[in-house]
Design a protein around this nucleic acid. Structure first.
Lengths: 211, 211
DNA sequence: AGTTTACAAGTCCTAGGGTCTTGTCAAACG
DNA sequence: CGTTTGACAAGACCCTAGGACTTGTAAACT
């Protein structure tokens, strides 16, 4: 409890442009959620603006008024997933103040669990790594920025601790954790918990250096 | 020098079935090499058995006699890359007896360097991770087995040292190194040398535990 | 505010025909 | 022998044209 210094930057600071889910009218949120649902079941390509409008119980024109284009709908949908992902990671760190290793373990396990059950998040994370996906064209605005955002977020939390390793090494550590998690998203071997445990253990060993 | 125990299993032991490059007639090797060359320049799809035969200076029928089918040609070509990859890793460990960290660093740097200049190896490693590729259908016989082979190979080398961590943790360490390297193959950030240095540093910290 | 109808532009799907390629012969060649 | 040549059926691939569907926009309607 003695190591916390800065309060935290806040998630929204990670996405300066492109206003988040908040700020849309009543229908907008509904439409994006339903689009995600339809994408999960039938795939993005199978969605038509007409079907989506029908599903939500609104006219096709309203969809265009609220969202704009289908591409914009897809981007908003993906953005939602990214925000949820980052929020989950952030929450894990807040849930374990003073215990970095536990935070990393929980964050990793959470992401791996979510990615295994949520095809959209899986697509986002896979794509931001190197794998292809039908949803890739929807990530035009943020492909690598997603990793960057996670990096900045985690780095921000690490910087609230007094760690016995140099900033450069901290960067390497954060990079490692993220890459390992993404690697297990695309190519899992064990359960999320087991994998997270291994990753957290490695991080622990690195953090123990020269203390 | 005191920690080496077992001589080493030998690379061929990692590929029990499917005879390696040795054993083919005079043409076979030539054809596989030329096929790899053509694939590197124009892509696998652009190769025709006629063009290949022409390039090597042999009749189309001879290609069929030596290789069999185009699929078999592709598999043999990929197998060659995998063998070279494993041989390179193996050589790095043999080049640094007694210095595990240096061996890991050199092996990682070598793989990253090769993968960045050799599209075929890049495809093999990317595919064995999670990325797609036009060459993926040629890896039917060994997709994950490639990672497995690398894992067994490295694990074999680590087992010649007396390490201060449990076998289970050694497994996690090897898995980490491999995944980090593959991650940087598909999504590189720095130079191979810089990346290898970071990976080796992390491995070093883990290996220093509780000594 | 939101809905309906209408419409141009563009994408996707299907079917067809033609060319190229694969894979396999058997016969001829050196 | 090992290699080449010529021939061939089967199938993959490429291009085209047509129709159906979808996108995106606009205006009139409630």
């Amino acid at each position: 409890m003695s190591t916390e210094v800065t309060p935290r930057a806040g998630l929204s600071a990670l996405f300066p442009g492109s206003a988040p889910a908040s700020g849309g009218s009543a229908w907008r949120e509904r439409l994006i959620i339903e689009a995600a649902e339809l994408t999960r079941s039938g795939g993005w390509q199978a969605i038509t603006m007409a079907k989506l409008a029908d599903r939500v119980g609104v006219s096709r024109q309203t969809v265009y008024n609220e969202i704009g284009t289908k591409q914009a709908l897809g981007e908003a949908m993906m953005m939602r997933e990214v925000e949820g992902f980052l929020r989950s990671v952030d929450a894990s760190f807040h849930a374990h103040p003073g215990d970095l290793v536990a935070a990393i373990r929980e964050a990793a396990a959470g992401v791996l669990r979510d990615a295994s059950t949520n095809p959209l998040l899986h697509a986002v994370l896979s794509a931001s790594h190197g794998a292809e996906s039908a949803l890739l064209p929807l990530l035009t605005t943020q492909a690598e920025p997603i990793i960057d955002a996670a990096q900045v977020l985690i780095r921000g939390h690490l910087d609230t601790y007094e760690l016995p390793i140099s900033p450069k090494r901290i960067g390497a550590l954060v990079d490692m954790v993220i890459r390992l998690v993404l690697s297990h998203v695309t190519t899992p071997t064990g359960t999320p918990e087991k994998t997270a445990e291994d990753i957290a253990w490695i991080a622990e060993q690195v953090l123990r250096t020269q203390r």
